[in-house]
Design a protein around this nucleic acid. Structure first.
Lengths: 150, 150
DNA sequence: GTACAACTTCAAGTCGACTTGAGGTCAAGG
DNA sequence: CCTTGACCTCAAGTCGACTTGAAGTTGTAC
């Protein structure tokens, strides 16, 4: 497969594939002239990378999991702790979602006067302010506007 | 209150407070000499900002909500749609968590041979690759290491 | 055989939310 | 009055994951 086919089948832009290769996350099996040649295996690896990214792993962490050998060696302990982290995140987001949901239909004249909203506020203050972890928890959903256009 | 008290009570560094002021998210009520003076109201606003950040709003979005007036005017529709986005995120993370959880205890010799893991992989491939939104969903939990230390 | 779209490399730019550093000012305690 | 440390400003740097652009090369269809 040449790069354009990988692009087609993975949905990732060529620049990303080159970037991943440069980082050592994937490998092209050779060159036809200058052009990279990929084995279909790369598609599976890309799916794995996507999986990892979605789970919140950084590319560096993923690189470790993929190992330099062909097949992955994933530390089960790491999986477990990552799952726990995810769980914490999920709990937070759930509280947030419920709070937002309520605020959207709350009858209080101002959100500030709604006890539930204030409770949510405290939760946020305790969670995001004043602690050392838990910062940088973004999840910017469909924020790709500028990227995917041009 | 001077800035050091806001720092103490909010847990945010002074640089962040100055940054927020520069961005128009908070306001100092005056100066004592060069030094900023804040009203206690700012603490409530900071909690609100933290809330918004945790829910996945950008600072720009939050700025709109806080309005230039003192009290917030939050679009209920926006809350609702943000809640929906959160919900989608939560669902994804939940699937991911369960998959990881399983992979951590799976008896298959390699993860690749576990049907559940492969299903997760497909899920990730469908979700993160090949679609236009849903990228950039990080949630880097306790990834503040470098920040909070120095 | 030649045009040209598709590939290549490498350096630099982008985005958001801050942080860091240099260099300067000043309110308050002794 | 004078020191000092907390505060100030402004420009530049950081981090991760890519993207963009310029400039060059080349497989392939005609």
């Amino acid at each position: 497969m040449d790069i354009s086919e990988v692009v087609r089948r993975s949905g990732l832009p060529a620049s990303t594939l080159r970037y991943y290769e440069e980082k050592g996350l994937i490998r092209s099996t050779g060159r036809r002239g200058l052009h990279r040649v990929f084995s279909p295996v790369v598609l599976e690896q890309l799916a794995l990378i996507a999986l990892g990214r979605t789970a919140g792993f950084s590319l560096d962490e993923i690189q470790v999991m993929l190992g330099s050998g062909g097949d992955l060696h994933i530390d089960r302990q790491m999986l477990s702790s990552k799952a726990d982290e995810l769980d914490t995140t999920i709990r937070k987001l759930t509280a947030m979602r419920d709070g937002l949901r309520h605020a959207a239909v709350c009858s209080a004249p101002s959100h500030m006067e709604c006890p539930k909203f204030r409770r949510l506020l405290n939760l946020a203050a305790a969670g995001a302010i004043g602690e050392k972890n838990t910062r940088n928890l973004k999840s910017s959903h469909l924020k790709t506007g500028k990227n995917s256009n041009k």
